[in-house]
């Protein structure tokens, strides 16, 4: 029996909800300082810190974040072991 309002919901579909609008501060990643340690990827509650695939002048794959979803919590900046991420005001 097919339901007009199906109770099964498709996987991964919250991506339609761009939570970036919540942000008052945004993380800025200094790609040159980034050592690609993966800490920001691990700690990001949104799961939107990621390796870009590109290398900096030291030959390290650097990370970035997705501002569509980043809520600006600052965890990545706080936990970055080399202070490659700083938070700055995000005026929209």
């Amino acid at each position: 029996m097919k339901l007009k309002y199906p109770l099964e919901v498709n996987p991964g579909t919250t991506i339609t909800n761009k939570t970036g609008g919540w942000r008052t501060q945004k993380p800025i990643v200094d790609h040159e300082i980034c050592i690609g340690c993966d800490v920001c990827r691990k700690v990001c509650p949104e799961g939107v810190c990621f390796p870009t695939g590109e290398k900096n002048s030291k030959g390290r794959i650097f990370y970035d974040r997705d501002l569509d979803f980043c809520k600006g919590c600052g965890l990545c900046a706080k936990e970055c072991p080399v202070s490659a991420i700083r938070m700055e005001n995000d005026f929209k």
């Binding site: 996987p11 991964g12 579909t13 919250t14 991506i15 339609t16 909800n17 761009k18 939570t19 919540w22 942000r23 691990k42 700690v43 990001c44 509650p45 949104e46 799961g47 939107v48 990621f50 870009t52 590109e54 970035d64 997705d66 501002l67 569509d68 979803f69 809520k71 600006g72 919590c73 600052g74 965890l75």
Partner: peptide
Amino acid sequence: MQKYKNPNQHLIAPGHTACPGCGQLM
């Protein structure tokens, strides 16, 4: 426009409504 595309690589997708910095979602 963002320069780098989020690969959306995790098994929990973003767009959830947990508080910023939530330890549980992480």
